[in-house]
Amino acid sequence: MKKILSGTIAAIALIATPAVAQTNQLHYAGTAPIPYTITNPQNAPFPLNVIGIAAGQAGVAAEVGTRYRAQADAPADSETATPTVDVEFALSGTVNRDCSFYAGNNSNARNIDFGVIGVRTGDNENVNSAFEMVGPAEANIDTLTAGCNTNNVVEINKDDIRGLVNLNPGGYDTDEFQANIPYEVTASWTGVALNAQTTGTPQSLNVPTTGNAGQKQQGAWRSRMDIDIVAPAVTNKGLVAGDYTGTTTLTLRAL
């Protein structure tokens, strides 16, 4: 039985390999009554496993046989191994709804004064033209910063449908004079329709001389905005002397 260890060195390789059974080797060999080997009898079905081990052990006890045994044991994974792990992180945050309109640095920037609104005052004017407006009164307002970051509505509201109004006109012939100057308001910007996800295009909202308010719903937009106020010349009647005032409110309101 010299071949039990072949050569002069026995190398023992220690390995850990996934999904491979742990080592459990049991070998017997002997010479009497005839040369024999018994390899891993513990793996045989019952009762052959018991008989094989008993025979091997009997040879060892009778000093006519030998035994080789190698066993290894290590605890299994604490949980089922997962070669790939996906971890999903739910990210969240909130952006507040906001509308912006740069309207100058103080209230003076928003006081639009037409100055003297010229009327025909010449002595040589025909009576049918006397005291009528010489031409239209116009104002232009523009800001480079306007818009909303959500669905919104652009609104224009006049405080009086009559337009600019002389609140203290005194007495006058209503067939020949009037104490108000109608005006229209047009706002222009670049935006998109409500709920639209597309490239911005020119948009506008107009409140005519005969209108008091208007609105237009929009998706989120940001752009320059121009506001034109035009009071067409009143030519069918003369204007009563005095101060003419009015207020127009532009509102950008998030929906």
Rank of each mutant, 00 (worst) to 15 (best):
N49G: 10
N24P: 02
C148P: 07
A72P: 01
A81G: 05
A44N: 10
N152P: 09
N106S: 14
N124S: 11
P169Q: 07
F131N: 15
V119D: 04
Y183G: 02
A81T: 15
N140P: 00
G147C: 11
I229R: 07
A109R: 03
E138T: 15
T84Q: 03
T249L: 06
A139I: 10
S92Q: 07
V134P: 00
N111T: 13
V95D: 09
D77S: 11
Y172F: 15
N166R: 05
V154G: 00
N43L: 12
R120I: 13
K216P: 00
A10C: 07
A54F: 11
E125S: 01
P47V: 13
W221S: 01
G65F: 05
V127C: 08
V87F: 02
S6K: 15
V134E: 04
N152G: 01
E125D: 10
E63L: 12
A32V: 09
R67A: 06
N212S: 07
P45Q: 08
Q42I: 10
P35S: 08
I229P: 09
D228Q: 11
A220Q: 08
Q218I: 01
P232N: 13
I161F: 13
G238A: 03
Q71Y: 06
Y102F: 15
V192N: 04
A146V: 09
N195L: 14
N152Y: 03
S223M: 10
